[in-house]
Design a binder for these strands. Structure first.
Lengths: 110, 110
DNA sequence: GCTTTATATTACCATATGCTTATATGGTCG
DNA sequence: CGACCATATAAGCATATGGTAATATAAAGC
């Protein structure tokens, strides 16, 4: 099955989205949001990130379309925009588990 | 459905893998390999990348486990390691298409 | 063995990105 | 309006990363 070639702009756009996921701190935020909607303060406690730092990471995730947000008084609640994030992360985690399993088998084989 | 918390090391490992996909040039290489196994020279022609540049990107993709390779005389053939890359990219492309579609609707709604 | 072809590696520069400190915005309550 | 909380933004530094040019390795053929 052949796929129509991707333009430079499209490649750039896709890379941009992957880049948003390519940072441990942002993955930690997403992992926290997997539990449910959270305010920034709650995210700070859950991840141990600094305030300014977390705020910028949240902007990045928002710009990439991975999270949505709503205001509630002085607080802002963030949530996952859809299930894609989970799917993407689960796919990647699955790869890591298989890697680890392969490594274990190699060691086990003496 | 709750997920066991991820360690710093795991988050780092996952981010590392996403980082390998977070670069237009590497996505272009993967797109070329989607067509089938290719030598480095063929990849150079397909992507327009410089030789040294492509070589480094291929090392990155190899280290991340996304491509495999085999020697054949003086040439080295690269191929996708499995179907995950396609799945990951397709997921991301799907997101972009939906974004674009939403944008179109917004404009259409005047 | 020497030349040629194919690929990898090194060194270098320019740019991008993360983290932190300090400051700004914006809402709430008294 | 003034003090306070929650969040965002700006500035600055340190590091990481992509691209290129130059060099190294390695196989093939004469």
């Amino acid at each position: 099955m052949s796929v129509r070639p991707l333009s430079r702009a499209q490649l750039h756009a896709i890379a941009e989205r992957f880049k948003a996921l390519a940072e441990p701190s942002r993955l930690a935020i997403l992992a926290a949001l997997r539990e449910g909607e959270r305010t920034v303060s709650q995210i700070l406690r859950a991840t141990g990130l600094g305030q300014a730092n977390a705020s910028r990471h949240l902007q990045t995730l928002y710009a990439a379309g991975f999270v949505e947000r709503r205001k509630d008084g002085p607080s802002i609640w963030y949530r996952l925009a859809d299930q894609d994030v989970m799917r993407l992360c689960d796919l990647m985690c699955g790869r890591l588990e298989r890697e680890a399993s392969t490594r274990r088998k190699l060691f086990a084989a003496r």
